[in-house]
Amino acid sequence: MFASHHAPSGASRPPGAAAAFECRYQAGSADWIGGPGLALVAGFEGITRIRTAEGQWSLAAGQVHVVEGPLVVFADRGDRPAWGVVAGTAAEWGTALGELGIPAARRFVPPGEYRLEPVQLDRLRALCLLAGRVSTHRALGILDDFGRWHRAVLEQIDRCPGRSLGQRRRVHARLQRARNLLRARCTQGYPTRHAASVVGYTVGHFQRIFHRVFGETVQGFVLRQRLEVARHLLETSQLSVGDVGLAAGFESRWAFARQFRHRFGATAGAFRRNALACADATAQRPPPGSAPAAPRTAARVPNVSRYPDDARLPAA
């Protein structure tokens, strides 16, 4: 387990304290441990990793997940990470949703994947950069379209089976746990069977409900996760292209090559060459505001052609 740099989000508040979120922005390999509340975790750059009771999975740049604690958010320095967290108790999230005018019965934030446009991601980064306790009112002043994110996940709950909202919420929570398991175990064989058994469904029933709620098949979701793992390995590892496909869970190099090209529009080898070229260009670029480097003069090399092969070169 990792050392904590943060008091758990579920810690008690002083009586009468205003509802507020705990905001954190991190560029680098430090970690964050969240308590039993809800944490909105955003990947801004590189690869961020999340660990929960269901397992561990990666969050790519531009992805945002709401995760129910306890959890650990961390990253390796080699992944060039930058990530942010907005955490609060269920009551604090409920207060925020009440300020948006959402009916009392729907003042909850379901765990799940939230899809953000670039401008929304920039606003979320600005909120995380405030770093500390931020009032729910001020937070929503920055995330002025959070209600739209919220409605998108509530629509998933409405598609879940159940006679009441409470029943549908419980089904959605079970499906979300299964989804996290699929993410964490996507490179292993038969993750669908394992995820279905954990949430108490038969494989066929699980596949039907998953497709109905999330709008994609279980197989399509697992394939998407495997391709993201492969993309990360191509950018950061020394494995051959064929071994990357096998490490990402594909049964053959041919199947990996076909699916990767279909998904990203380029072969895996071309993708790796382009990623390495971009990384080299970024490494050679001087930091903003730095003085231009002085022109380098060529060092003088003595003309050794007139010396015998066994003669010593003149001392510099």
Rank of each mutant, 00 (worst) to 15 (best):
S4C: 05
S9T: 08
S9Y: 05
S12G: 05
G16M: 09
A20Q: 12
A27P: 02
A27D: 09
A30G: 14
D31T: 14
W32R: 03
L40V: 13
V41L: 12
A42S: 14
A42C: 10
I47T: 15
T52G: 03
W57F: 15
W57K: 00
L59D: 02
L59E: 00
V67G: 04
V67E: 10
G69P: 07
L71N: 05
G78V: 02
G84K: 07
V85Y: 07
V86H: 09
V86Y: 08
T89H: 11
A90Y: 13
A91H: 15
E92S: 14
W93K: 11
A96E: 06
L97C: 01
G101S: 00
A105Q: 03
R106L: 08
P111R: 01
Y114I: 00
R115L: 06
L116V: 09
L124T: 05
R125I: 05
A126K: 09
L129Y: 09
L130A: 14
G132N: 12
R133I: 08
H137M: 15
A139D: 15
G141M: 11
I142F: 12
D144K: 09
G147M: 03
W149S: 09
W149D: 07
W149A: 08
W149I: 00
H150Y: 04
A152E: 13
D158M: 01
P161S: 02
S164F: 03
L165E: 08
R168T: 01
L175N: 02
Q176N: 10
R177E: 10
R183T: 08
A184M: 09
R185A: 13
G189K: 12
P191W: 03
T192P: 01
R193T: 15
R193I: 10
A195W: 04
S197N: 11
S197D: 12
V198G: 01
V199L: 11
G200L: 05
Y201N: 04
V203E: 15
F206H: 14
R212H: 15
R212I: 07
V213E: 13
V213M: 13
V218N: 05
Q219F: 14
R224E: 15
E228T: 14
E228A: 15
S237N: 00
Q238T: 07
Q238Y: 02
L246A: 06
G249L: 01
G249F: 00
E251L: 10
F256N: 04
H262M: 05
F264Q: 04
G265V: 01
G265W: 02
A266K: 03
A268T: 02
A268K: 00
A270E: 15
R272F: 06
A275T: 06
L276V: 12
A279G: 03
P286W: 09
G289D: 06
G289I: 04
A294M: 09
P295G: 07
A298R: 11
A298S: 06
A299V: 09
V301L: 12
V301G: 03
R306F: 13
R312T: 14
P314I: 14
